[in-house]
Design a protein around this nucleic acid. Structure first.
Lengths: 223, 223
DNA sequence: TGACATAGTGTCAAATTAACACTATCGTAT
DNA sequence: ATACGATAGTGTTAATTTGACACTATGTCA
């Protein structure tokens, strides 16, 4: 008997990416409108088949780039979805990733497999293909949970940002207002932010100091 | 062009299971000695190919049962490993799970693909096949992390147990001694343990009250 | 120069966590 | 029977962390 005795065809393997950003103080994700069957014309997460010589993470980044034109995001594996009937025709396993990016940089462009690309606020999602609704829901849970014990939130910030902006991001994800003084105390106590020296003038009020992440490659976990 | 245009054969899909238990106050995992190439004769995690009509979790439970005779464990998805060269011959994706079980019940029996099954203390692992070393390492990290904010530890306990036994489990996983009074206060404050009324007489000392999990199906998260 | 809008700052009470030591009850050996 | 060994069981207090709370500063614009 050969070592890999396995009589059935292997299931297909894909990655799907839930890319979060903050737009207009709302948590939003990027969806594509499917050009192909099944669920043709339906909105879905960007993603696609894993190629023979790429690792899963590379696949996620490549598919995101191909379908939406977006690259350079923070990416982390979320969960692998593998129910036999999650795709109506052949069996497909999806390794789901979630990604974070500041909205400033991002202008998605519909690529090959996508008829259209658009941001959707999480509280106003359209009908979705496959089990993508579940994936998104899990991704949101994960994001909210990691806010408390990690520094994921910085993945949603631009190169430099004010503490006010950072607080709004936290408030948006947690869905509740935070005390300004406690928030600033907490964040600065992490010791991972550095003042840039510059400040941002916006609106008819006092300019805010701009901060950046002191050691971008550094720890991602708080405590 | 057909909807699923994909020119390459799909990679194979497996699950691998890191089954933890506590033996002699040491954290141990279950390994099998491989009967087949590659890594024939080498120790490896139990696991195997996903069948067409089973979901990933079912596969993990089935493979564990087939190769080691063990069933009825607590199981949770860990991470999916998919580097193209993690298997020397064909590409294999592994959805890794970790499992927990009290050692009392468990008497592993080598099944089909396993020439031998044995427990190994985590600090004395043999050379391992594939990237199973990495999987185990990640599983241990996860277990340690979840100890603080979840009730996973109960997955390692028998039906009933004493607070002293529970504390030893926590101490073993964390690798440090804990204060007895604080520990008991903390655990009882969770409100998920119930006295059974019985107590356990062991050794030449006072018997300890036996506890059980009040609502076994209940929440797995603390706070 | 006054209205407005956000930036920026410190204190104190409450809650949580961490340190700490002795009595109780059993078995066993003398 | 009695002393010893071994683990069970139990509260208090200080230290730390968290959460609530309000005013001044600095810019723009009318």
């Amino acid at each position: 008997m050969p070592p890999y005795c396995y009589d059935y065809p292997h299931p297909a393997l894909t990655t799907d990416i839930t890319l979060f950003t903050i737009r207009d103080e709302q948590l939003a994700i990027l969806l594509i409108r499917r050009r192909a069957e099944p669920y043709q014309g339906c909105w879905a997460l960007p993603g696609g088949f894993v190629e023979p010589d790429e690792c899963l993470e590379e696949c996620a980044l490549r598919e995101l780039e191909e379908e939406t034109g977006i690259s350079g995001v923070y990416l982390e594996q979320l969960y692998t979805f593998g129910k036999p009937d999650r795709d109506p025709r052949e069996r497909i396993i999806s390794v789901a990733y979630y990604a974070l990016a500041p909205c400033e940089v991002l202008s998605p462009v519909a690529g090959s497999d996508a008829a259209e690309v658009a941001w959707f606020n999480l509280d106003a999602l359209p009908a979705l293909a496959f089990d993508h609704q579940d994936i998104i829901h899990l991704a949101q849970q994960r994001l909210r949970a990691k806010l408390d014990y990690s520094t994921v939130a910085f993945g949603l910030m631009a190169e430099t940002f004010t503490l006010g902006e950072l607080q709004k991001v936290y408030e948006t994800i947690r869905g509740e207002a935070l005390d300004k003084r406690n928030f600033r105390k907490h964040i600065l106590a992490l010791g991972i932010l550095a003042e840039t020296g510059a400040s941002r003038r916006v609106g008819n009020h006092r300019p805010a100091k701009l901060y950046c992440v002191a050691h971008p490659g550094a720890v991602h976990y708080i405590r």
